[in-house]
Amino acid sequence: MKGATIMAVGRDFAIRRLHSLLGVIPVGLFLVQHLVVNHFATGGAESFNKAAHFMESLPFRLVLETFVIYLPLLFHAVYGLYIAFQAKNNTTRYGYFRNWMFTLQRVSGVITLIFVAWHVWETRVQAAFGADVNFSMMEDILSNPFMVAFYLIGVLSTVFHFANGLWSFFVSWGLTVSPRSQRISTYVTLGVFIALSIVSVRTIFAFIQ
């Protein structure tokens, strides 16, 4: 009987919860770490290269990348696209704040996926082909004003998707239940968005001289 009740539960629930969890742990944590380490760029080429080299030479690099980044990110992206295109966005009729956040979460998710795919191709995949990922590589990419705009939009959309995703993570796991706790969580995650935006915009401009 007990087994029967468990069997009655479909796969949707576990997959949606996994999607919510992986967005924060480990993908969100990796994002924060990545943005913070990149901030070394504001200290000049040498300080950035030192930090980048440290990250590159971590032991078990490929294992870490696979389980902390590639697999969780791939799952989050693929299932996220399914969720995004399942929604029937209706902000014209219901222009409430949370409904706008709902729509923006889906829009920013798609922008983030496009940006991250390009970013991974331009840096990590090139590194696998033997390129050296360093300060001058980023300087080179961002010497193109179009790429500066692409990076600004891409990174800000990623940071928004993470901060707002954190808000819904707290709701989806039942951590913020009351309207007041959800309101406080809105302010806290807004703070996360602003703080990470400052960190990442400063980094981008550090590569532009």
């Binding site: 539960v9 796969r11 409430y96 709902f102 819904s168 989806s172």
Partner: peptide
């Protein structure tokens, strides 16, 4: 537990996307 398991099935609780239009 019976009711919770029922809403954990496909088409249930996990499909909420927190747009919060319902409460408005």
């Amino acid at each position: 537990a019976e009711r919770l398991n029922a809403i954990m099935d496909d088409g249930g609780l996990a499909n909420c996307g927190n747009s919060q239009n319902c409460v408005q």
